[in-house]
Amino acid sequence: MKMRIPILKLKDCLIVSIQWELDDQTAISFQEDLLEKLHTTSARGVVIDLTPIDFIDSFIAKVLGDVINMSGLMGAKVVITGIQPAVAITLIELGIRLENVSTALDLENGLEKLERELEG
């Protein structure tokens, strides 16, 4: 069984809300789907909301990092929102700093931040 993560379009931004635990396969098809959607919509920004996610291991972190870099190559800025305190602490202890990743507290703040960055 394969679950697909829905990707919504709002003006020239894409919004992704990850609602359940990511297994490796879902993570990889999400990467493909997002890049495909960026290509077809020529969106300039992406917000990925991780509020319901209660852990991120090094594999998922790598997929996320890759998605951000690949989106950058395609001309889109990515903001990650809603990383939970427990998730942030485990990432730091794992030694994953996700440098140069733009973050915001929640989806709303994330969209505002994206708008500001796209204007600036």
Binding site: D54, F55, D57, S58, F59, Q84, A86, I89, T90, E93
Partner: peptide, 17 residues
């Protein structure tokens, strides 16, 4: 607590992978 749950879950994920 939630933070230790995340630590344990993540550690298991790394080991299993």
């Amino acid at each position: 607590g939630t933070v230790d749950q995340a630590r344990i879950t993540t550690a298991i994920s790394e080991l299993a992978r």
